[in-house]
C-alpha cells in the first residue's frame, strides 16, 4: 500500500477517535452557525439568498481553528518520541508529512460538509447562485490547505503544541492581515507584491466565483512551501 495512504488512514482514524478533534469541529460549527444565522450582519440582515456571510465568518474562524488542529501533528510526535518509530521505517519523511496533510485536509472537508445544510436551507428558501457557493467552498478548502501547510511547518519546529499553535498564528497573521495592510500602505511594485501575497485577495477572488489559475497556484505554493519546510526541519538530524 502507498505509505501516504497508510499514514492518511491512521491520522484520520486518530482524529475521529480523539475528543479534541470533535471539540474543534463542534466549536467551528457552533461559532460559524451562530454568526451566520443569529447574530450581527447575519444571512437575514443581508436579505439575499447568499452564503457570503458564512464564507466571510469561516474565513476568520478557520484561521484560528486550523492551528488548533495542526499544532499536535508533529510536535506531539516529537514530544512522545514516536517520530523516531516512524522515521526508522522504510518511509520517506515527505510521505509521512503528506499523509498528515491529507488527513487534516479531509478533516476540514468533513467539517465544512457539515455546513452543507446551510446551503440546502438557502436553496429551499431563495434563489441561490450554486456556482458561487461551490467556489466559496473551494476557496475555504484552498485557504485551509495553505494554513495546514503552515501549521505543519510550525509544528515541525517544536515539541510544544502551544508554541506550535502560536507560531502558526504568528506566521498566519502575515498572510491574513499584515500583507493586506502593507499593500494598502505601499504603492507601486511593493504594493502589488504584498497584495499578491495577501490571502484575502486570492480568497475573495475565488469566493466571488472567479477561479483563476494564479489564485490556485498561490494557495498550492503556500501549502507546498510549508510542507517542504517541515520536511527540511524534520530531516535535519
Amino acid at each position: 500500500m502507498n505509505p501516504v495512504k497508510i499514514i492518511f488512514k491512521r491520522e484520520l482514524s486518530a482524529a475521529f477517535h480523539s475528543l479534541s478533534g470533535y471539540i474543534v469541529m463542534v466549536a467551528f460549527l457552533g461559532f460559524t452557525g451562530f454568526f451566520t444565522w443569529f447574530y450581527g450582519r447575519d444571512i437575514f440582515f443581508v436579505g439575499q439568498a447568499s452564503l457570503a456571510t458564512f464564507f466571510n465568518i469561516a474565513y476568520w474562524t478557520l484561521f484560528f481553528f486550523i492551528p488548533a488542529l495542526t499544532m499536535r501533528s508533529i510536535a506531539e510526535e516529537k514530544k512522545t518520541g514516536t517520530i523516531e518509530t516512524m522515521l526508522t521505517k522504510p518511509l520517506r519523511a515527505s510521505d509521512w508529512i503528506m499523509g498528515k496533510f491529507w488527513a487534516l485536509t479531509a478533516l476540514i472537508a468533513v467539517t465544512l460538509a457539515c455546513t452543507l445544510p446551510y446551503y440546502a436551507t438557502l436553496a429551499v428558501i431563495g434563489d441561490i447562485d450554486h456556482r458561487t457557493v461551490l467556489c466559496g467552498y473551494l476557496g475555504l478548502m484552498l485557504m485551509s490547505g495553505a494554513y495546514i501547510g503552515i501549521g505543519i511547518f510550525a509544528s515541525s519546529l517544536t515539541d510544544n503544541q502551544i508554541v506550535a499553535f502560536l507560531l502558526t498564528l504568528l506566521i498566519g497573521i502575515f498572510f491574513h492581515v499584515l500583507f493586506q495592510i502593507f499593500s494598502y500602505s505601499l504603492s507601486g511594485w511593493w504594493g502589488g507584491f504584498f497584495d499578491a501575497l495577501n490571502m484575502r485577495t486570492h480568497y475573495e477572488a475565488v469566493v466571488r466565483g472567479v477561479v483563476d489559475s494564479r489564485d490556485i497556484i498561490y494557495f498550492v505554493s503556500v501549502a507546498l512551501a510549508g510542507l517542504l519546510s517541515a520536511e527540511a526541519a524534520i530531516s535535519k538530524r
Binding site: H17, S18, T80, G81, E84, T85, T88
Partner: peptide, 13 residues
C-alpha cells in the same frame, strides 16, 4: 532492521 528505540515510543491511543 527491526528497531526498538530506548524510550519505546508507541501510539498510546
Amino acid at each position: 532492521i527491526g528497531y526498538l528505540p530506548e524510550l519505546n515510543p508507541l501510539y498510546e491511543d
